[in-house]
């Protein structure tokens, strides 16, 4: 087993009593990049949020482990400290808390008291990563996501990813709202993270992103389950042909959750 591992087995997730994820299995190892694709409303964000520990989602069945440790037993912050990261589809805005303060607090939260990152080192690293993402210096002192444009928020998520260096990252529609140049920059950011210790799950609707970040595996989710898996070529076929052929293949009429095959 490699250094980083996220293992999801028979996961069932409900929200307000309605089951959204219905028995999902997925394993991601360090060094691997997985893409999850699927039509709107099929449970992709639910999967991501539930793994991170979103308070609204209830896990009714199944297990999720990170490096063999039970993730579902942990508080949200403990999951992060265990190495999990989620770039959210809709990141929150927090007024009055600067981006820099937020990041420094996040970094220090994973370090022992007395072993906090030095301010110099922090600033240097942040400047470096912001430059790599084409973010202006002013973003370090702006309040966390407040008034950020859609694309700026996405870059900020990737900035956090690069600063925090998690073992396993889930990126939920990190490409939506990005212009062509930003898409390249953000992809470069993600690619720079690639290492045998880093595993990544990319949720996306578009092949475009996967042109820049080549996935090792592509999964299609429908009705709260993974219904098809393949290599990078699967994404290309979806881009070209849409989802109908899969639905036909599997006899699915309505792919959204709550509909049974």
């Amino acid at each position: 087993m490699s250094a980083s591992n996220l293992k999801i087995e028979n996961l069932h997730v409900s929200i307000e009593g309605k089951e959204i994820i219905k028995g999902l299995d997925l394993e991601i190892n360090g060094g691997e990049i997985h893409a999850v694709m699927g039509p709107n409303g099929t449970g992709k964000s639910t999967l991501a949020s539930a793994i991170m520990g979103h308070p609204k989602y209830e896990i009714t069945e199944g297990t999720v482990t990170i490096d063999g440790k039970d993730l579902l037993e942990m508080e949200v912050d403990e999951r992060a400290k265990a190495g999990l990261f989620l770039a959210m589809q809709y990141p929150s805005e927090v007024s009055g808390v600067t981006n820099a303060d937020f990041l420094r607090t996040s970094i220090n939260a994973r370090r022992e008291e007395g072993d906090e990152i030095s301010l110099m080192k922090f600033i240097k690293k942040m400047d470096e990563k912001m430059a790599a993402l084409g973010m202006g210096e002013e973003f370090s002192q702006r309040y966390l996501n407040e008034g950020f444009s859609g694309g700026e928020k996405k870059r900020n998520e990737i900035l956090q990813l690069m600063m925090l260096e998690p073992k396993i990252a889930i990126l939920d529609e990190i490409d939506s709202g990005l212009d062509i140049d930003a898409l390249k920059v953000v992809s470069q950011g993600v690619n720079s993270m690639r290492s045998p210790e880093f595993g990544c799950l990319i949720i996306t609707h578009y092949q475009r992103l996967l042109n820049y970040i080549t996935p090792d595996k592509v999964h299609v989710i429908m009705q709260g389950r993974i219904v098809k898996s393949g290599g990078a070529e699967l994404a290309q076929r979806l881009e070209a042909e849409g989802y109908d052929w899969i639905k036909e293949e599997l006899g699915i009429e309505d792919e959204t959750v709550g509909q049974e095959a």
Binding site: G53, D77, A80, S92, V97, T105, S106
Partner: peptide
């Protein structure tokens, strides 16, 4: 905002610390 708390905690910040930041942030203006 519970989503704010979730977001901040998802970066490794404890609930107490996240609340602390939110309060300071709220009073900052």
């Amino acid at each position: 905002d519970q989503l704010q708390l979730f977001y901040m905690m998802s970066r490794g910040i404890s609930r107490a610390e996240a609340e602390r930041l939110i309060i300071h942030g709220f009073l900052a203006p």
